[in-house]
Amino acid sequence: MVTWKNNGLSETKIHVSNLDFYYGITQALFDITMDIPSQRVTALIGPSGCGKSTFLRALNRMNDIIDGTRITGHVLIDDEDIYGSSADVVRLRKRVGMVFQKSNPFPKSLFDNVAYGPRTHGIKNHKQLSEIVERSLRRAALWDEVKDRLSVSAMDLSGGQQQRLCIARALAIEPEILLMDEPASALDPKATAKIEDLIDQLSDDYTIVIVTHNMQQAARVSDVTAFFYEGHLIEMGQTEQIFTKPQQKGTEDYITGRFG
């Protein structure tokens, strides 16, 4: 079993211990234990079906909505067990924002997309909403491109803009943690570069966990990298070390492109 102790990089934001996950009777994650550092970018890499997306979705309990799933073990965010009996899923998801692989803007106006979260949490005042929308769009590096057309449908944006809109929408609820499930996999290189720049900026304030298929991307954007294989955490460490001196044979084979 691999455990990676977060030694001195920064405080631990998410502490996962002995996490097992099942779809029905199929076990998808085996005894995962890891510390995710605060205000850093942690990349989850591994071949398709290795469980990295399932693990990511376990961090904001998005797997709950799939029938027949079961989880054991602990996920502590700031020492609070998110699977504990007193845990509140709605509050959890406010603290842990998520950006999906396929950008999923709502078929509403740009404004209504970004204001969706705050409205859901009870903010009705238009001036206050406008401020949140502007701040979130600026933070997602989209404001200058769309400030004059906030009332057009989100479906009219380009793919890269749509994904940044989804990031803005997640930021609008002021989360502490941002989960990203291959956020740039459907984008062209230019749009991908924008998203990567954005991740770099956001990591000053947010704890970011990103799933990626792209080795270069993991190397470029992350501080810490975790390698998953067949539901097991094989190796985790500072990104530089993982890519230059991997300790495990499997990690080395994967990052050098021998499989996957």
């Binding site: 904001n60 998005m62 909505i65 709605v90 509050r91 959890l92 998801r93 406010k94 924002g97 998520m98 999906f100 396929k102 999923n104 709502f106 078929p107 969706y116 979260g117 859901t120 949490h121 989804c166 929408r169 997640a170 609820i173």
Partner: peptide, 20 residues
């Protein structure tokens, strides 16, 4: 994906159904 997007923003199931 629209349901998931809404739930991930901390909306409850009913809020998601009603507004999204």
């Amino acid at each position: 994906s629209l349901r998931e997007g809404s739930l991930a923003l901390g909306a409850t199931k009913w809020q998601t159904i009603w507004s999204n």
